[in-house]
Amino acid sequence: MSKIGEGTNPQSQEKRDLLVLLERAQSRSGYLSKRTIAELAESLGLSIGEVYGVASFYSFLSIKPQGRNVIRICKSLPCYLKNAQTIIEGVRKEIGINPGETTADGRFSFELTNCIGACDKAPAMMVNDDVHGDLTPKKISKILQAYK
């Protein structure tokens, strides 16, 4: 997981570290709880709204609880041209949920995302930080097995 900002002394945390701290909290707990946001606001001298505003701006930060693994299928043009729709369908069938949802057992959250920079391997998706390219509906089951 992210090592970014670990050199920052917690005593000297400043407003300028907000995004780094949010990213760290996100990778630690999988999402940004109200408590996390309130604590960060308190320690940095910001309003809750300001922290919430940053947290809700970025699509890789989540203000809702997430599954242990987050699947993000690229929906941008280069992947769309290579039938990303069949991959979306494939994942939907495999884990039984729609984009925007989390499985009941908390194993997966499923999202669609904009271009992930793997267009040469389209269609592509990310599972957590891993990029999987040249996907076919057949490959999905095997890929997802690795994520518990």
């Binding site: 941008s76 043009l77 280069p78 904009n114 271009c115 920079g117 267009c119 040469d120």
Partner: peptide, 11 residues
Amino acid sequence: DEGEVGTFKDR
């Protein structure tokens, strides 16, 4: 922050 759709050269 190579985010332009269809770009991956910096990657």
